[in-house]
């Protein structure tokens, strides 16, 4: 079961914009074994969603995607023909989107939409697809599943729609699920519930999952691996326990400092923030992109940034080999 299902090396995404190129994602590496959950974290605009859409082959033709390697179980995703990609999408790899309110087609019943992927990819009858749809709706916690199949998206709440989206992604028992901030658009009270459900189902079915989120609390609970993205680069990656136990990159430590912790954060104490904004990625990007916001920036940050690996599975990109220089300062 420790077979690698997804292997990405040097993934780069360039978007032509008026008067230049936006280097949205620059040479990121990660891999995923069957049954693992990889969490990609980072703030808005760091390239998390672009990365996932690129792997699914869902970016428009205008956007240039390249990589040394982007293999899904032996298939080179970036070289695959549109037909090959179509046979993967929805069947062996599927995606759950951020916007449950608009991600379902208003003109068709949820039953039709649930059954679609299965009828497209598997040699099954409508009755079989229907049975599977009912089964999965029950699994995602929708009551009276049979009668829901005839309902239209506008008759369901956001939470129910996202449950339908999850069931839809699971229809063909994919080997890889990419969930792009699946709970961001939902009411806070059901966010945890939906996420727990998703993770349980993924574990139960033995699927691999890439979970994109900026909720570090979620990451700490569900991730096997963590990849921290900042402005189109992977600044730190590793097993969840290692990254959370000993964060090395100044950005990762900054992110962790932003979470108030019960018992540790004093009442009324200011919450941690990372000052500044993400720099423009249009034109040549050199050196460490975080240096403009980093407390520990030095002259060498403008040059080539080395990669350090404190553990076998843990690595980060920073000029400071020991990374955690400011541990005293951050505990203030």
């Amino acid at each position: 079961m420790s077979e690698t299902i997804l292997n990405v090396k040097g993934l780069t995404i360039d978007i032509p914009v008026g008067g230049g190129t936006l280097h949205a994602v620059r040479g990121i590496d990660f891999d995923l074994k069957r049954g693992e959950v990889l969490c990609i974290v980072g703030e808005s605009g760091s390239g998390k969603s672009l990365t996932s859409l690129a792997l699914m082959g869902l970016l428009g033709k205008r956007i240039k995607v390249s990589a040394e390697q982007a293999d899904f179980d032996g298939t080179a995703l970036l070289q695959a023909s549109p037909r090959e990609m179509r046979s993967l999408r929805g069947a062996r790899m599927s995606m759950i989107f951020q916007e449950p309110m608009t991600s379902l087609n208003p003109a068709y019943t949820i039953g039709d939409q649930l059954m679609e992927a299965m009828l497209l990819h598997r040699q099954v009858s409508r009755a079989e697809a229907r049975a599977r749809a009912v089964d999965l709706l029950e699994k995602v916690g929708i009551t009276a599943a049979g009668s829901r199949l005839g309902q239209y998206p506008h008759q369901l709440s956001g939470g129910l729609r996202q449950r339908v989206m999850i069931a839809m992604a699971l229809m063909c028992e994919p080997e890889l699920i990419i969930a792009d901030e699946p709970t961001t658009a939902l009411d806070v009270t059901i966010q945890a519930q939906i996420l727990r459900l998703l993770v349980d189902l993924v574990r139960e079915m033995g699927m691999a999952m890439i979970l994109i989120t900026h909720d570090l609390g979620v990451v700490a609970r569900v991730a096997d691996k963590v990849a921290v993205m900042y402005a189109g680069e992977l600044v730190e990656t590793g097993a969840a326990a290692e990254v959370f136990g000993a964060p090395m990159h100044p950005y990762t430590r900054g992110l962790l400092r932003c979470i108030p912790q019960p018992g540790k954060t004093a009442r009324g104490a200011p919450l941690g923030t990372i000052p500044g904004i993400v720099p423009s990625l249009v034109g040549e990007v050199a050196g460490c992109v975080f240096r403009t916001r980093c407390d520990e920036a030095v002259e060498t940050c403008r040059g080539r940034i080395p990669r350090h690996g404190p553990g076998e599975t843990h690595s980060f990109r920073c000029v400071h080999e020991t990374g955690a220089k400011a541990t005293e300062k951050e505990r203030v």
């Binding site: 869902l58 929805g90 069947a91 087609n105 679609e116 992927a117 839809m168």
Partner: peptide, 8 residues
């Protein structure tokens, strides 16, 4: 996008 993600 959802329809494309299903492999339609």
């Amino acid at each position: 996008r959802t329809a494309r993600a299903k492999g339609a």
